[in-house]
Design a protein around this nucleic acid. Structure first.
Lengths: 248, 248
DNA sequence: CGCGTTCTTGACTGCTTTCAAAGATGGTGG
DNA sequence: CCACCATCTTTGAAAGCAGTCAAGAACGCG
């Protein structure tokens, strides 16, 4: 199962970076040098099959990577088996980008679908790849924003609100990479995965999704989300976790 | 109300950095130069009274600061009044440390007690203050770890577990700055603040705290925590959110 | 000593989980 | 092309954890 079958039918390695490139370009302007660096790195890309760990908690981080294709998730396990997904990684996201020495992975990252990774080109301000360096920095800030939003979601939203808020957020993130629109997009996750992301049980996720379909808000079937009434969704959930300050 | 009355009775500005210095030293070795930079910065320290905003969401970040004394919290508000505290800031923590351009505060930071801040000395690898630079980087990593742990706490722990886990975490953080032990330490927060941190209501926090006292686990009275049975607390909650991987 | 905030308590509601089992779905091999 | 299997989704009933509302007690501050 490939998430982006359209891409996998194209032969050249260079096409594989399209989504990641668009995503990174959205974070910071990239010049030809930046793009060349990326294309070079993409030559060394490798594949990780679904369900396999990309990075194990506690393992030393050798080389930061860029996710070119597919979905992954970052999660923490409790000893009794409970699992909490911290956030999802989409094409263009960075894996194991870490500023300080002795970098050790704080959490496990696992491939959700088949995934293609490439090494993240070295880039520092003032040197080659300046645009990339800025994109990396912005990417980290976005990731922090995701974490903050996730905390607010889990701490203060109801199950219904959590799901809607998360779906909207995910749609926006996917649209940013250009692989699909934000009204209809792929969501290669089971209801149990959604539950582990949103601090719920799969049974309850199932019931909420049914309500949403009944309420004409959105529909999830065979790995595809269709947002039916975006305005109402935003009103219900975007409940402004992020938007509140921006709007006033 | 001052959190650390012992320190406030001492006259010299230099003594005020004691806790922050110990905290930063725990993160990375600091040489004389690093210490001198800090002492210099501490001369320019300023005070923020309890309840006042230190940094407003959306505001540009001009100058990163170090929290020298007192407690603060980082929070996000929903338009309907719900509030989620993301994490607390203790002496030695950094405020507004941000790597990318056009830095804008993602969240509001508010003084919980009277607080003393000083500008964070500029420091980069390879220049003066190399130790500080590393301490900053480690500090950011610790902050990320706090956020990840908070997500797991909110998503997968029961109210009872959340409180214990958070108390243990906070005790460890305070002990790191050396201002008190991790069995008995100040906790200058109301039960409502705890509720906003842990995604609960103040009523329920109250009931859980009573259970814990009855169960002989810990006691909170007049702003002081006393952990009565650390082992059992760890077993119940540390439930290894962080510790799981470390222990095996 | 008086007042506002914080803490406690009780009764009741309801969201979410739990447990269990019956459908659906999709991929695989015969 | 169909039977079969594993996984995922759906459903129901019952229990429980946490929230809500409201009011009284305690605390701390001026």
């Amino acid at each position: 199962m490939t998430v982006h079958p359209a891409a996998s039918t194209r032969p050249a390695a260079s096409t594989k970076i399209a989504f990641a490139l668009q995503r990174l370009t959205a974070l910071a302007p990239l010049d030809d040098e930046d793009r060349a660096l990326l294309r070079g790195a993409a030559e060394a890309s490798h594949k990780v099959p679904a369900r396999r760990e990309i990075l194990a908690q506690g393992a030393p981080i050798r080389q930061a990577s860029i996710l070119l294709e597919g979905w992954a998730y970052r999660a923490r396990m409790l000893p009794d088996g409970r699992r909490q997904i911290l956030h999802f990684l989409l094409p263009g996201d960075l894996v194991g980008m870490c500023a300080h020495r002795n970098p050790t992975a704080l959490t496990t990252i696992t491939a959700l679908t088949d995934v293609i990774l490439c090494p993240a080109p070295q880039a520092r301000a003032g040197q080659a790849g300046e645009g990339l360096a800025e994109a990396y920095a912005t990417s980290r800030a976005r990731e922090e924003e995701l974490l903050l939003r996730q905390i607010t979601r889990l701490g203060r939203l109801s199950a219904y609100e959590r799901i809607i808020d998360w779906i909207l957020e995910t749609g926006e993130r996917i649209a940013l990479a250009g692989s699909s629109g934000e009204t209809v997009f792929p969501l290669p996750v089971t209801q149990e995965t959604i539950a582990d992301m949103l601090g719920l049980t799969s049974v309850h996720v199932n019931r909420m999704l049914q309500s949403m379909r009944r309420d004409g808000l959105l529909r999830i079937q065979s790995g595809m989300v269709t947002i039916l009434d975006r305005d109402r969704c935003v009103r219900l959930a975007d409940y402004s976790i992020a938007g509140a300050a921006a709007r006033r």
